[in-house]
Design a protein around this nucleic acid. Structure first.
Length: 428
RNA sequence: GGAAAGGUGGCAGAGUGGUCGAAUGCGCUGGACUCGAAAUCCAGUAUGGGGCUACGCUUCAUCGAGGGUUCGAAUCCCUCCCUUUCCGCCA
C-alpha cells in the first residue's frame, strides 16, 4: 500500500511513476473520493464531538440530581444525521481503502523502465555453460529413468503435479537441506517452520489479496460450513513476512533474517499452455525462502546481500547463472526493485528464473502495520525484503540437466554429496 | 468431543452503564538528591486517523473481532475468534 499522504500531496508524481510500470492510475476518481471523504469526515467528527460533550453533561447533571430532559431532547436531534454520516463515511473509507489496496508499489529509481521480460537488464553472469559432446537431454528425459514420474503425479492430482521416487526424491530433499543449512550456518538466517494454511488478512499484508486471489488455492475446513476462507501459501514469504505484522520492533533487534523450507501452492491461473512439459511450472513445489525485516536506511544494502546469499547456493552447486534487474513492467505487485537469478538450462539453451529477490520497502509493512521504534521514539514503518534461495524444483531440474552424462547417469554436485550419504552418481 | 474460566496499555492487574484512554504496581525516559550508585522524591510514558491561523493546538476511533441496546458501553445483549484448566480422543 502506498502512503496516502503521497497521493494527497504529490499525485502527479505518483501517477507518472505508476505509469512507468504500466499501471494507469485513475487520479480523477481518487481526487473526487478524497475530497468527499474530507467533507464527510469533518462533519461526522463534529457531530460525534457534540454528542460526546452532551452525553458527558448528562452524566454530570444526573449526578447532581438535576433534570436532564432538556439536554436529552437536544441530543436526540443529532441522532439521525450522525448515524447517516457515520454510515456514509464508513462506506466511503472502504472504497478508498479498496482503491489503495489495489495500487502496486512505486518502482525504485534504479529500476529500468520497460514493458516485459525483454526489457530486463542483465547485471552479471557467473560460470560457463558446459560444452556437451553428446546431445543434452532435458530433465524429463534425464530424470524419467531415475525416478521422475509425471504420469504418477498426474494420476494422483492432475496436470502440474509430479511424483518423485528413489534417488531423485532423495536428491530433491538433499537440495532443500543443503540450502537451508547454508543460510542458517553461513548467512545468519534463523530457521523457521511456518503454517502452510493462512487467513485472508495475512495475504492482504504481503499483497496477494485483494487482487491475486485467483492465483491461490483456497481450502475448506471439513465439517464447518461457515468457516472463513483460508488459503494454501504460494510462498513462505507470506508467513515469514507476516511474523512482524501488527507489531513495533525495537530498533536494536533489526535486522530480522528468517529462512524457511516450505511447499508452495499456485493455481497458475492464466498460464495455460506455458511450460507444460516437465517440472518447471507446478501447482506444488518446494522453495527455501529468505526474508529480511530491515531498517529503511539499510534495505538496499540488504537487497544486494540477499541476492548474494541466493547466488552462493548456485555457486556452491556450480550451476552457471546470470543476474537480471527486472524492468518496471515485469516486477511483482509489491516490489520496488527486483533481481532475478536465472540458471542455465542446456536443453532449453537459455537461462531460466530460479530465484527472485525483492525489496518491497514499506509497501507490505504499511499493509501489515509492521513498525519499529526510531531514534525519536516514534513508530516508523519497516522495510521488508524477500528472496528465493532457491526454488527447489527448478534447482533439481538444473542439476539433472547440467550434470547429465552420456550414459544416462547424473553426477551429484560435490556440495550435495554429504546430504546424499556420499553418493556420487545417480544411475539406473 | 464434554465441562469450566478467561481475553484491558511494554508487563502484572483494577474497573461490571456516565468526568474512563482507562486506578495501582512494575518497567522505561527525563529531572532532583549524591563524589558516584542504590534508595527516595517529582514529572512524563499507547496506537491509528482527521482538522487547522501547524514542530503546537484540537478532534475522532481503539479495552480479542464484528454486530446490537443506550443520550452515553471496557462495563449490558448477540455472533465469532483465541487462550488456559480438567476429562475424552489422537500423531
Amino acid at each position: 500500500m502506498l502512503d496516502i499522504n503521497l497521493l494527497r500531496n504529490d499525485l502527479d508524481q505518483v501517477v507518472a511513476r505508476l505509469g512507468a510500470r504500466g499501471y494507469q492510475f485513475d487520479a480523477a476518481t481518487f481526487t473526487a473520493l478524497e475530497s468527499e471523504r474530507k467533507t464527510l469526515q469533518t462533519r461526522t467528527q463534529d457531530l460525534q464531538a457534540q454528542r460526546n460533550a452532551s452525553s458527558k453533561s448528562i452524566g454530570a447533571a444526573k449526578q447532581r440530581g438535576e433534570d436532564v430532559s432538556a439536554i436529552m431532547a437536544q441530543v436526540a436531534t443529532l441522532g439521525d444525521e450522525l448515524k447517516a454520516n457515520e454510515t456514509a463515511l464508513a462506506a466511503l473509507q472502504d472504497k478508498l481503502n479498496a482503491l489503495l489496496l489495489s495500487i502496486p508499489n512505486l518502482p525504485h529509481p534504479d529500476t529500468p523502465a520497460g514493458k516485459d521480460d525483454k526489457d530486463n537488464v542483465e547485471v552479471r553472469r557467473w560460470g560457463t555453460p558446459r560444452a556437451f559432446d553428446f546431445d543434452a537431454k532435458d530433465h524429463v528425459d534425464v530424470g524419467g529413468p531415475l525416478g521422475l514420474d509425471f504420469e504418477g503425479g498426474a494420476r494422483l492430482s492432475g496436470a502440474r503435479f509430479t511424483l518423485l521416487r528413489g534417488q531423485i526424491a532423495r536428491l530433491h530433499r538433499a537440495l532443500a537441506q543443503f540450502m537451508i543449512d547454508t543460510h542458517t550456518t553461513q548467512h545468519g538466517y534463523t530457521e523457521t517452520y511456518t503454517p502452510y494454511i493462512v487467513n485472508a488478512d495475512v495475504l492482504f499484508g504481503t499483497g496477494q489479496l485483494p487482487k491475486f486471489g485467483e492465483d491461490m488455492f483456497k481450502v475448506e475446513k471439513g465439517g464447518d460450513e461457515n468457516s472463513p476462507a483460508q488459503y494454501l501459501i504460494s510462498t513462505s514469504e507470506i508467513t515469514l513476512t507476516n511474523t512482524v505484522r501488527d507489531s513495533i520492533i525495537k530498533a536494536e533487534e533489526l535486522p530480522i533474517k528468517l529462512t524457511a523450507h516450505s511447499p508452495c501452492f499456485r493455481s497458475e491461473a492464466g498460464s495455460y499452455g506455458r511450460d507444460t512439459r516437465g517440472m518447471i511450472r507446478q501447482h506444488q513445489f518446494d522453495k527455501v525462502e529468505m526474508v529480511r525485516i530491515e531498517h529503511p536506511d539499510n534495505s538496499y544494502a540488504a537487497l544486494e546481500e540477499l541476492v548474494g546469499h541466493a547466488e552462493a547456493i548456485l555457486q556452491k552447486l556450480e550451476l552457471p547463472y546470470r543476474v537480471v534487474n527486472l524492468c518496471t513492467g515485469d516486477m511483482g505487485f509489491s516490489a520496488a526493485k527486483t533481481y532475478d537469478l536465472e540458471v542455465w538450462l542446456p536443453a532449453q539453451n537459455t537461462y531460466r528464473e530460479i530465484s527472485s529477490c525483492s525489496n518491497c520497502e514499506a509497501f507490505q509493512a504499511r499493509r501489515m502495520q509492521a513498525r519499529f521504534r526510531n531514534e525519536n521514539g516514534k513508530p516508523e514503518l519497516l522495510h521488508t525484503l524477500n528472496g528465493s534461495g532457491l526454488a527447489v524444483g527448478r534447482t533439481l531440474v538444473a542439476v539433472l540437466e547440467n550434470y547429465q552424462n552420456a550414459d544416462g547417469s547424473v553426477t551429484v554436485p560435490t556440495a550435495l554429496r554429504p546430504y546424499m550419504g556420499g553418493v556420487e552418481k545417480l544411475s539406473m
